[in-house]
Nucleic acid binder design. Structure first.
Length: 188
DNA sequence: CACAAGATTCCG
DNA sequence: GGAATCTTGTGC
């Protein structure tokens, strides 16, 4: 079982492989956020989506721009983008440099009393105070304001695979993954 | 330089 | 179902 006193930060190699696999491997892992006052907020990742440059719903599909540049870096950093004039969303960049790909973190299960309302990509950013300041930072070090620790890996039989939310293209891909029966998933 | 769209959320 | 709200990318 996951225990914060025994926790280990996930290393870069975890993110430098296939994005669809990594999106599933991230389920059960623990998102950690150091906020002011030295407090750390933690949440178990319960819902993710994979995005790669080969399919048109991905921000990286039309090539590198100022906005999506972090997606083209080597895996293990954040990609935070702003949308709808009011929301931030958090991704973890995957694979190798010059290949545009990332995993969108869509929901976490709070492990602290302090963080609530985390069942959606923009909601969890608000709960953890994740903004553009945290874009393109290393998430493989607990010296960062944001990092990821090993948790309890979710067995394949407990992973639900569905179409991604909020996109109009490549809807045939079942690249949205979430933990079966988890209450904090954004949309069952 | 103008304009449309957006990996969402909340309200009615 | 529709508004909120503003950054970014694209095209003229």
């Amino acid at each position: 079982m996951y225990n914060i006193f025994m926790s280990k930060v996930i290393n870069k190699n975890f993110f430098r492989e296939n994005t669809v696999n990594t999106a599933q491997n991230l389920l059960g892992m623990v998102l950690c956020r150091r906020i002011e006052k030295g407090k750390i907020l933690r949440g178990k990742i319960v819902e993710t989506e994979a995005y790669t440059q080969e399919e048109p719903s991905c921000h990286a599909y039309r090539g590198k721009t100022k906005r999506n540049a972090p997606m083209f870096e080597a895996g293990g950093i954040s990609y935070v983008y702003f949308t709808y004039g009011m929301h931030f969303c958090l991704n973890i960049v995957t694979e190798n440099k010059d290949y545009g790909s990332a995993v969108l973190i869509r929901a976490i299960e709070p492990l602290n009393d302090f963080c609530t309302n985390t069942n959606g990509p923009a909601k969890l950013c608000k709960a953890l105070n994740i903004t553009k300041d945290l874009n393109a930072i290393n998430v493989c070090s607990n010296k960062s304001p944001l990092w990821i620790e090993f948790g309890d890996k979710v067995e394949d039989k407990n992973i639900i695979k569905k179409s991604r939310i909020g996109i109009n293209q490549a809807t045939e891909l079942k690249w949205r993954f979430y933990i079966k029966n988890n209450k904090f998933v954004s949309k069952p």
